[in-house]
């Protein structure tokens, strides 16, 4: 297993946000984490990437305990991230954004006499080519279209050859066709590179079309886990989350 989570717990002021969640993601697998607002998805996610320290439980990355490590340490061990609202460096070009990830990976951040232009440029272009952004390498990140920014984030996340990708609502704010394209790209990269992908998502079309497995959270607890078809048919999941399906077209 690339990622194994055992009995993760977190409470805020007495309220149990995440209450004993266990899950695992295999190399090359896409696992979707879904559930109603406030179910504990974000809390769970933030404990995996190091933003939050769990009250209990363990997070294992390829067998190594990374519980409670700072985000930048987690990254060094091979966990890439994309954010719900894209986070890139707006005052830099697309290529410079990726170069910075490579510089950090090579531990060259404190070089203050050299020029960034000479650092890792070819490798950055390779990564951009993989996500189809090489043609826009010299544009400023601050002026890119939203869908393109998501691709840049993916390229940044791939810069340290990650074993695990954590994607928080990867398709939020994108048009349906863009969503499909981004998820297909992600799936291809994950399969080719044997990268495990864990993502949260509100768009049920995306979840049911692209996830290999789905985990459903409600009030901090895991209430269902399995293949998309099984989860969709689960009566408890329908009651607390999916509803009749009229508003997302994947129901009855």
């Amino acid at each position: 297993m690339t990622l194994a989570v055992e009995g993760l717990r977190k409470a805020f002021g007495g309220v149990k946000a995440v209450d004993g969640v266990s899950l695992s993601v295999a190399a090359g697998e896409l696992l979707a984490l879904i559930g109603p607002n406030g179910a504990g998805k974000s809390t769970c996610f933030n404990m995996l990437n190091g933003q939050l320290r769990p009250d209990g439980g363990r997070v294992l990355l390829e067998g190594r305990d990374i519980t409670g490590m700072a985000p930048r340490k987690v990254w060094r061990l091979g966990v890439g991230r994309t954010f719900q609202i894209t986070a890139t460096f707006a005052s830099m070009t697309v290529r410079e954004n990726v170069q910075m990830a490579l510089v950090s990976h090579a531990r060259g951040t404190f070089d203050f006499l050299g020029a960034l232009a000479d650092r890792h440029a070819p490798r950055a272009m390779e990564l951009l080519a993989r996500v189809g952004m090489d043609a826009q390498a010299d544009r400023a990140c601050g002026v890119l279209a939203y869908g393109d920014l998501k691709r840049v984030e993916l390229a940044i996340a791939l810069a340290n050859d990650p074993r695990l990708l954590l994607m928080d609502e990867p398709t939020a704010g994108m048009a349906p066709a863009e969503r499909v394209a981004l998820m297909e790209l992600t799936a291809r990269i994950a399969r080719e590179g044997r990268i495990a992908v864990l993502f949260t998502e509100h768009d049920m079309d995306v979840v049911f079309a692209h996830a290999d497995r789905i985990v459903v959270l409600d009030r901090g607890k895991l209430i269902a886990e399995g293949a998309p078809a099984d989860v969709r048919a689960d009566p408890q999941v329908r009651a607390v989350y999916l509803g009749t399906g009229h508003t997302h077209g994947v129901g009855a």
Partner: peptide, 14 residues
């Protein structure tokens, strides 16, 4: 109005 809401909530919003 439906962005980011669980499908059951979206139904109530409708």
């Amino acid at each position: 109005p439906s962005e980011g809401l669980a499908p059951v909530i979206v139904e109530r919003m409708a």
